[in-house]
């Protein structure tokens, strides 16, 4: 009994030291982490929407092959796509992961609510990644509809 309590106490001492150390590192790094992520987001917004007053940057996350494909789509006040960027994706390397390439994404620029936005119709799909290509099309449609 005494032995068990003693073991528990030793374990607790290790936990307390570890927690204290982590709290210290957290306090030091947290401001930088927050700054990094908001700076990265602001930069992405500027990329898809060069002039802030001309439209809205809409974040959509359609379901791809390996999880959500998070997109930031710049939609102008005329409801046309002016910029598009992939914020995060977990698609297959070498196939669906090509979704980040400009050659594919730039096809969406200039599209609007009246375009079909479908692979084989007005969009050339990524070879071997139909699901990913369809997801991006779906995301762009959502973004255009979502723009107020």
């Amino acid at each position: 009994m005494i032995k068990t309590v003693k073991l528990g106490l030793i374990l607790m001492v290790f936990c307390v030291i570890s927690a204290g150390l982590l709290a210290y590192v957290y306090i030091i790094t947290q401001p930088r982490i927050v700054r990094n992520s908001s700076a990265a987001y602001d930069l992405s917004v500027k990329e898809v929407l060069p002039v802030a007053s001309s439209g809205e940057a809409v974040r959509v996350a359609p379901r791809g092959y390996g999880g959500p494909v998070v997109l930031l789509v710049g939609v102008s006040n005329e409801k046309k796509v002016v910029g598009i960027k992939v914020l995060s994706q977990k698609e297959t390397p070498g196939l669906g992961a090509k979704v980040v390439e400009r050659g594919f994404l730039d096809q969406f620029i200039g599209k609007g609510a009246n375009d079909p936005l479908e692979p084989k119709k007005d969009i050339d799909a990524i070879t071997g990644a139909t699901i990913t290509s369809r997801a991006v099309c779906e995301g762009v449609r959502q973004a255009i509809r979502g723009k107020k």
């Binding site: 374990l11 290790f14 936990c15 570890s18 150390l21 982590l22 590192v25 957290y26 790094t29 947290q30 930088r32 982490i33 990094n36």
Partner: peptide, 16 residues
Amino acid sequence: IIISTFVTISDYIMQA
């Protein structure tokens, strides 16, 4: 506990 402490530290440092 020791290993995960160091992993979390490197995780925060890389993020920052």
